[in-house]
Structures are given as C-alpha cells and as structure tokens.
Design a protein around this nucleic acid. Structure first.
Lengths: 252, 252
DNA sequence: CGTATACTTGAATTGAGTCAATAAGTGTGG
DNA sequence: CCACACTTATTGACTCAATTCAAGTATACG
C-alpha cells in the first residue's frame, strides 16, 4: 500500500484553485490568483520560491530573442509582454500579448521559437527550466496546472488562427477589443473602457493587417457608433450586441 | 528521506524516449514510436491499455464536433484527421491535419473547441479524459510527455499564425508542402514526393485562401519548375533550395 | 457511359496594402 | 509656458494580390 498521502481531486485537476495565504514576495503579488503558482499551498510555494528569481524590465526591453537558448520560464506579474516572430525580410507577426498571470518560455526545443519584449515596465518571476521540470516530481499539482494552461494557450492560438485565416479587418479589430475586455475582466478590471497598452503597429502585427487599415477600421467603428474613443489608447465598447454580431460575422 | 524510488532523468524529460517491447494491440502499432505512449515500458503500458478503447472511422466521418462534451482524448494510429473551426456564416478554418502519432482532444474546457473529422479511413486509441488524467498520478512520465507534445503543438500553432498573418499565397503553399514533407519524414517516409491526402478545399481552408488561389499557385509553382505534379495529389519537391527560399520570402 | 465531384483556368471585382501627406500627441530644453 | 523636434496616429489617393463569379476540363464512381 502506498503511504504517499492525500489523493488529488480527480475531476477538476485543471481548475485554477482557490487563493491561499501566500509567502514572501508572493504575499503582495497581484497576479497570484491567476498565475500557475496559484495551485500551491504555503508549504509547496516555499519550494517554488527557492528556485525563483524576481526580475523586472523597462518598456521596450527584450526579455529574450527567437533562437536564444531556452534556459528560463517566466511568469508575468506586472505589465504587458509582446511575443512575436519575424521573417528574414522583416515582416513581423505578434502571436500574443501577455498580461499578469500569463507564463512564457515553455519551449520544447532548446531554443525559444519567438521573441519576447516588454511593452510597458514589467515584473516577472523567473525559473530555470530544468529546475522547474525537476520540481514537477515533488509538486504534481504544478505540472497539471501548467498542462491546463498550455491547453488554454492552444485554444487561444486556434482562435487566433481562425481570426487570421478567415475574418475581415473589421471582424479582427472587434474580436481583438472583445478579447482585451475579457482578459481585463479576468484580471478584475471591468473591461469597459478597455485600454490599449500597445501601439497601432503592434495591433496591426497582431491582427495581420497594416497600421493604416487598423486606424481606418477603428475610425469607422467609432463613426458607426459601436465604440467611443476618449483617447487613442482607450476604447469604450458602446454597443456590446453590435460588437458581438460584428465579431461573429453576423453584420449587414 | 524519501524512498519513492528511482529519480527521473533530469534534462531530457520531454524527449520521445526509445522504442521498447510492446504489449497487446500496441505490438503492431505503426504509430507507437511517435505517440505519447512511447515513453512507457511494458508494465506501465498495461495500465494505459486498461483505460483504452480502439476505435476506427471511415473517411468523411466526424469524430466530434465543436461544442460537444469533451469526454475523450484520442491518439491517431492510422489515417489522417482534419481539425477545424467554423464561423456562424459557414466560413471554415482548418487548424491542423493530424497524422499517426498525433493526439487530439486535450481541451481545458468541458467542451471541444473544434471539430475533428476523418479525411481517410482512420484508427485511433480513445481514452476517457478523467481516467487519463487520474493515471498521470501513477505514470508521471506520461504527463511530462503530454506536456512536451502540447508545447510542440503550441510552437506549430505559432508557425501557422505567422503564415496566416504575414505570408503571401505562394509562401503559404510552399510552407505547407515543406511541412508535409517534414512530417512524412518523421513518420519514416522519405517525404519526396509528398502525398496530399486532403482536397484543394481543405488546403485552402488550412492556408486561409480560396480553392482557386491554391490551384493557381500550385500550377505556377509547377510552371516555375520548383515542383512536379505526377497527379493532383502527389507533389515532387524538385528544387529544394528554391522552395526553402520561397518559404522564407527570400525570392526575387 | 453518364453523372457527380474535384480541379483548373479566365475575366472582373474588391478589400486591404502602399505611398504620401497631414495631424495629433509627447517630451525636452530654453 | 511655449517652441521645437520627434514619434505616433489619421486620412487620402492609388495599386495590387487575392477573391468572386463563371466556364471549362479532368477524374472518380455507380
């Protein structure tokens, strides 16, 4: 008979788990409830802390580049990170914007397949990849949580593939705004108005469009009255039903 | 001190692992070396077999639809599976083609986020999701392997995002042919000529193009002499260097 | 052998891109 | 506080790659 202790609850293995009293730097961490470490109790969190380093970066600074040796995994705790890939001739595709709670750097290969840069001042928790993988043997919850988050990312990537492959510019921009609102709500903001911490160039490279098309499309949405623009990086989602209809391609 | 036994090798946790003598139906499985079960020794494979059901489907048959309750995880052992998402108005985006060894159905949510259909006669191993997740506690290698495969899929999804967001029709078609060749090589085929088990409509919906554009682009590649078309579903990659240059956007 | 299906080819259209200019912020130093 | 430079965003005119619409031609199948 095994004496290894309590069984893992069978079904909601992937669930985010409740917020427990935290330790050291984690006590004040705003991303604690969202991040992959949220499945850990105080004792186990201590083990994770032992292999963790807190880091920060200024806006515009690179965290790592495509092709760098993939030695670390990161957990964003503050600010926004831009993840992108480039073609040799300079065309850029942003594959995602990462907010507090999101993780970064889970490469299978020994090199990163993408570049990660801060677009605002950021704070992160850094883990040596090998040490984190070793820790999985002692903290199986952590591994399950990471697998769950990877499954989430995969679903998000497929949504993005549908967007890039089949949606019009108008549908893309609206999908993007609604995604930002949803993510903001998850972080506790009410998500309306949404803020755009990234430039028009970043939005364009995320949506597979040009700066000009993004700008024109936003202007048009504003003229149509479905959004309001208090400033160039704030968007009020004025007509939610219309926006949902546009995202789904159910418009005129 | 722990007495839980042998430590897991630290670094190559994600590695596919060698082919070991197999059990029951797995003995004859052509996908054995590629699939997620390949990390298991004979004893552990027995445990996996207990929760496994062998299934098959005819060409054209659906395995599950977007929105169905996500009760099972599958492992393709023979044939080709098409994974797709649809917009309400019928626009379709294929997010991937799955070959022997690929897995399917790792949803975080309780419903599948995409539709899966056989495009050729297929065989699969089916696992109840809950039971597979439970088994992870006893077979940690299996979970690490699945996490590694999820990381691979994520990298592939990002490549597809770059393709859809930034590549021209010509670059997309060439990228697709080269991907098929690479996957065929992984399965032991030499990858030249490549076979196209999917229709032009499927290729179009995978590459975010129309049937006509795919057809014209393939014709053009053939006229340019970089490929040869013995039949409409066979492609000889005639000028590998030129094809690589085209994929990377380094052409004239 | 005929009919349906899949694929190719052609001509015309269009949504988004390119090129070019203007406007609106943002920050700096006098 | 304003003038200047610099960056970022908007707007306009024109172009073009890919789509749409429309035949046509193979290919598979009962």
């Amino acid at each position: 008979m095994s004496t290894t202790g309590a069984k893992v609850p069978p079904s909601d293995i992937f669930a985010p788990g409740g917020h427990k009293p935290a330790l050291g730097p984690c006590a004040a961490c705003a991303a604690r409830q969202l991040a992959f470490c949220n499945v850990l109790e105080e004792d186990d969190l201590g083990q994770l802390l032992k292999i963790m380093t807190e880091t920060s970066a200024a806006a515009g600074q690179a965290i790592f580049y495509e092709g760098d040796e993939a030695s670390s995994v990161y957990n964003v705790t503050e600010g926004v990170v831009r993840v992108s890939k480039m073609l040799p001739d300079g065309r850029r595709q942003i594959t995602g914007f990462l907010f507090p709670g999101d993780f970064l750097g889970l490469a299978h290969d020994d090199v990163y397949a993408y570049t990660a840069e801060a677009i605002s001042p950021i704070r992160m928790c850094r883990f040596k990849r090998g040490k984190l993988l070793d820790l999985f043997d002692e903290l199986p919850h952590l591994e399950k949580r990471l697998l769950g988050m990877a499954a989430d990312e995969l679903a998000a990537a497929q949504d993005q593939i549908l967007l890039l492959g089949r949606k019009t510019a108008r549908e893309r921009v609206v999908s993007f705004f609604r995604l930002l609102a949803k993510q903001a709500r998850k972080r506790g903001d009410n998500g309306n108005p949404i803020s755009l911490p990234m430039s028009r160039a970043d939005i364009a490279d995320y949506l597979g469009l040009t700066i000009e098309t993004v700008s024109r499309t936003i202007t048009k949405l504003s003229k149509d009255g479905v959004i309001v623009l208090p400033s160039s990086n704030k968007v009020v989602l004025a007509d939610m039903d219309a926006l949902e209809a546009i995202e789904m391609g159910e418009e005129g």
